[in-house]
């Protein structure tokens, strides 16, 4: 195993979806910069992601964001020791912008480069808030976002086992679609949570898809339920109560499966990552469960829950430390499983 010198600043690049981000992390633990230019405001105009606009904006924003990150870190480009970039999965046109920039930098600076799986990046966001996780393997990881909902067992650096996944919709997608049914504007998830804060979560019992003993999730049923409920209700039930009941149904399913997984696999350290990890109720319920069951729960700061490049840089550092760099001709993939 090659021991990396210290300090070892890795520059990460992330352009798999809406965010153009460049981050600089030293020794896989210390964030020196995490510059993010989001397209969310723009996509709100359109009501969703526009792939062509997304790619073009990544091109326009790449260099300014890179400069911002270097300035934030007070480093020159020659101080960077390695490059890490998201190369899978995502919108191909968007991914290619980041990958091309990364390859150009690595070639020009003659330093190592690694392509990182976007979800692996999310896993490593936990190491940025809790560097001691390195000595806490195995870890149980819930990745929960607009595109993904899965439970992974992280046995060591680079060693993942998929324990459960959604069989239909992702949890973030269920939030967004539920919000649209409630008539809330984009981004639906956060708006639904805000509305739910003052609502009665016990007002309606939306069904939880148990999926038997499996650690899989299903969120399309609860989505259909809220629709059927709204059609019958004729606007009698306050929207706050519907939002709170709906949010609770989704969050309880997530927390329940994490508890079940921790018992089944005897894992004491639970991590949450991905955009939905910023959900207040999910954080609260996870922490309550952890306290009740004597389990450690790690949840990154909101900025590290969204798509960002600091997590990619951290993942890149550990890949270089425990594995090897890629050659410059590595590929970019729209879809690929991490485990």
């Amino acid at each position: 195993m090659p021991d990396l010198p210290s300090p070892y600043p890795v520059l990460g690049i992330e352009t798999s979806c809406d965010e153009t981000s460049v981050g600089i992390v030293v020794d896989g633990a210390h964030i020196r910069a995490n510059a993010i230019a989001s397209q969310a405001d723009l996509h709100a105009l359109y009501g969703g992601v526009v792939p062509e606009v997304a790619s073009r904006l990544h091109v326009e924003r790449m260099l300014p964001v890179l400069h911002t990150a270097l300035e934030e870190a007070q480093l020159g480009i020659r101080d960077i020791k390695a490059i890490a970039t998201t190369n899978r999965p995502g919108l191909l046109g968007a991914l290619l912008v980041g990958v091309s920039a990364a390859k150009a930098l690595a070639y020009a600076l003659d330093i190592p480069i690694v392509g990182i799986h976007h979800l692996e990046g999310h896993l490593y966001s936990n190491f940025l808030v809790a560097p001691d996780l390195e000595s806490a393997f195995p870890l149980l990881m819930l990745i929960v976002s607009g595109g993904h909902t899965q439970i992974m067992l992280m046995e060591a650096h680079g060693r993942y086992r998929l324990l459960g996944r959604t069989r239909d919709d992702a949890a973030g997608e269920a939030f967004d679609k539920g919000a649209r049914l409630l008539g809330l504007p984009y981004p639906g998830g956060p708006n639904l949570s805000r509305l739910a804060e003052t609502g009665d979560p016990k007002r309606i019992h939306f069904p939880r898809a148990g999926m038997g003993d499996s650690l899989d999730f299903s969120f399309s049923g609860v989505k259909t339920s809220i629709r059927a409920f709204l059609e019958r209700d004729n606007g009698q039930t306050p929207l706050e109560d519907i939002a709170a009941s709906y949010e609770t149904a989704i969050v309880e399913a997530l927390v329940e499966k994490m508890l079940r997984a921790s018992r089944e696999y005897g894992v004491k350290t639970l991590c949450v990552a991905g955009g939905v990890a910023a959900n207040r109720l999910l954080q609260l319920r996870m922490r309550e469960m952890g306290e009740r069951e004597g389990l450690r729960v790690v949840i990154p700061d909101p900025i590290l829950c969204t798509d960002n490049a600091a997590m990619i840089a951290a993942a890149g550092y550990f890949r270089l430390k425990h594995g090897s760099p890629h050659s410059l001709d590595f590929d970019t993939y729209a879809t690929e499983r991490l485990a």
């Binding site: 995502g90 919108l91 607009g146 595109g147 996944r165 069989r167 919709d169 992702a170 879809t335």
Partner: peptide
Amino acid sequence: PVTSPTFTLVQ
């Protein structure tokens, strides 16, 4: 497993 392609647009 076939899941919703909403996020990825095509699978």
